[in-house]
């Protein structure tokens, strides 16, 4: 089973993507999509040797909801700054320590932080496990770091480690 399906999450995701693009859930589409999904996930195991384990799938849904709300709020905040006659945000760089080590969790955190308009992930230093973040409207640095740690890092630690 493990030989045939090294990345079940990736394969399932690809199958759903195939069916959505075909806009039908007929038997033929499911079979063909399944073959493609299994083949691609076997090919991907050459690039991603380790198994991806999600320990708490329900927490993952919570993560998506929290990130979505944050993205909406940040969008409105940045828009209000940009429509100001003289946009003058107090931007700044933050160097932040992370206890997170799992590469997939780090990738998810990077995508969430960059997709939020108020912050951008610049550079991760693996040796010291710190990350350089640029924040659009920086009010209180310690508070910002504490918010990210509490809101995202704790959840990701629970999901992946």
């Amino acid at each position: 089973m493990r030989r045939l399906l090294p990345h079940p999450i990736l394969a399932g995701f690809l199958l759903i993507l195939w069916l959505v693009l075909q806009q039908s859930a007929g038997l033929g589409h499911i079979l063909f999509g399944g073959v493609i999904a299994i083949a691609v996930s076997m090919a991907a195991s050459a690039i991603i040797p380790e198994r991806v384990v999600i320990r708490r799938p329900l927490k993952f849904i919570q993560l998506i909801l929290v990130a979505g709300l944050d993205i909406i709020r940040s969008n409105l905040a940045v828009m209000s700054v940009l429509f100001h006659p003289r946009p003058n945000p107090t931007a700044g760089f933050i160097e932040m320590d992370l206890t997170l080590k799992n590469p997939f969790a780090l990738a998810i955190l990077a995508v969430i932080l960059t997709a939020t308009p108020g912050s951008a992930w610049l550079e991760y230093d693996r040796a010291r496990s710190t990350v350089l973040i640029h924040v659009f409207d920086l009010v209180d640095e310690d508070e910002w770091v504490a918010t990210v740690k509490k809101r995202y890092e704790a959840l990701l630690l629970e999901i992946f480690q």
Partner: peptide, 24 residues
């Protein structure tokens, strides 16, 4: 608003926040 931010903001690191509004 994101595209105008690309024009109006002063430095590259600020401008990088503009396009994410259009994509998110």
């Amino acid at each position: 608003a994101g595209c105008f931010g690309l024009v109006r903001l002063k430095s590259f690191y600020l401008r990088i926040h503009g396009p994410t509004m259009g994509t998110s």
